[in-house]
């Protein structure tokens, strides 16, 4: 099979890294060759971050090329727009409805765009916008926003719920398994 390419983007500190590791472990559990490329260091301090997940029969590069992503999973709205050119034709965008202003916007040097969803729809008809932060708040911990989003993503794949559950349980810190599973389930059953 051709490799599946999932690009996960967001703001440093939002938990994109953990999400990509769940996906990596899931693909490995399913017997695929898999590569995951992460961001560490300076960008993790509130910068724009991107992780690449690729799996299939044989994967060479750990990086997804522009125009080759099957799914763009974004933890922050403007970041979805920043990376949308990585999407292939008829690819899918799943974005968290949350906006986080970058420093140039906070200082007034730049403006946060107000037509992000329209911008995304110029690239693809498949745009899922979901308020994962509010769902996480309802559960009682904003740190599981990432698992809510993972749940939304899971719904659009043909991989069994049980496999997702297993990969998530094995990847997150042991004492947070329960709340992450709950968040995942809320995302899985949410209406985007």
């Amino acid at each position: 099979m051709q490799s599946i390419n999932i690009l996960i983007v967001g703001v440093g500190g939002q938990g994109t890294l953990l999400t990509s590791r769940v996906l990596g472990n899931l693909a490995s559990d399913l017997g695929y060759d898999v590569k995951v490329s992460e961001v560490h260091g300076m960008a993790q301090r509130g910068g724009s971050v991107v992780t690449h997940v690729r799996f299939g029969n044989k994967v060479y590069s750990p990086l997804i090329e522009v125009g080759k992503a099957d799914i763009l999973l974004s933890f922050e709205k403007m970041e979805a727009l920043r990376w949308v050119h990585y999407l292939k034709e008829r690819g899918m965008v799943i974005t968290n409805d949350q906006s986080i202003n970058p420093m140039p916007v906070i200082t007034g040097a730049a403006e946060y765009p107000d037509d992000i969803l329209d911008g995304l729809k110029k690239s693809t008809a498949e745009v899922i916008n979901i308020n994962a932060l509010d769902i996480a708040k309802e559960i009682g911990n904003i740190r599981v926003t990432n698992s809510v989003l993972l749940g939304v993503l899971a719904k659009y794949t043909d991989i069994d719920y049980k496999n997702w559950e297993k990969a998530l349980s094995h990847t997150v810190p042991p004492r947070t398994v329960e709340i992450n599973l709950k968040a995942f389930d809320k995302g899985y059953n949410a209406r985007g």
Partner: peptide
């Protein structure tokens, strides 16, 4: 390989 539009940068910041 160019992005569709120019967006505000998001440099890293002090937490």
């Amino acid at each position: 390989t160019q992005p569709a539009e120019e967006l505000p940068n998001r440099p890293p910041v002090l937490c």
